[in-house]
Simulated assay, not measured.
Amino acid sequence: MTQHVSEHDVRAIAEYARIRLTDDEILPMTEDLNSIIDSLHPITEYDLEGVEPTFHPIGGLSNVMRDDVEEAGFTQEEALSNAPKQLDGCFLIPSILGEGGDR
């Protein structure tokens, strides 16, 4: 198996992705990543001479989104109409920090 990524690379990738890997997990992860990269080798054997790159699977679409047009929104009363609890025109939600209670 070809060494595409080293243990040092795996540590750097894990740190960047904020994945905590133990020292015992680094070697198996390095082997797995190198195996995955090796499995992609057959793709390099295709003759792609003259094939234009495709950046979108559907083709030449430029912008399929609607125009950004301002529309009327909810009034404060409409927005709060289904709120289980409200106080002074605001949503009242359970506190997840501190001593609890509604905030």
Rank of each mutant, 00 (worst) to 15 (best):
A12M: 14
A83V: 07
G98S: 02
Q86R: 00
V69A: 01
L92C: 08
A12E: 15
F55H: 13
I19H: 00
S62Q: 13
A72G: 10
T75G: 04
V5M: 08
V69W: 00
L80D: 09
D32G: 07
A72W: 07
P28T: 07
M1P: 11
L48C: 07
R20W: 04
E78M: 11
D23I: 00
P53Y: 00
D102R: 07
L80C: 08
V5E: 03
I96P: 08
Q3G: 02
Q86N: 05
Y46W: 07
Q86F: 00
G50H: 01
D38S: 05
T54S: 15
E31M: 13
E49S: 10
V51A: 08
E25G: 03
E70T: 02
E78Q: 15
S35P: 00
Y16W: 12
L48R: 07
M1I: 05
E7K: 15
D9I: 03
F74I: 07
D32E: 15
E7Y: 05
S62L: 12
I43P: 02
Y46P: 05
N82L: 13
D9M: 10
T30E: 01
L92K: 09
E52H: 04
L40G: 03
E71F: 11
H8F: 13
D67E: 08
D67W: 00
E70P: 02
D88N: 15
R66Q: 01
D32L: 15
I26N: 12
I19V: 09
I36R: 07
I26M: 12
L27Q: 14
L97E: 12
D68Q: 03
D32Q: 13
T22S: 14
Q76S: 15
L27M: 13
E45M: 05
I36N: 04
D24S: 11
T2Q: 12
P94C: 01
L97A: 12
S81I: 02
R11T: 13
L33Q: 00
G100L: 00
I13E: 01
A14P: 07
I13Y: 06
T44V: 13
I13G: 04
I19T: 01
P28N: 06
D23M: 01
N82P: 09
S62M: 13
R103M: 13
Y16Q: 14
V10S: 06
G89N: 08
L27R: 14
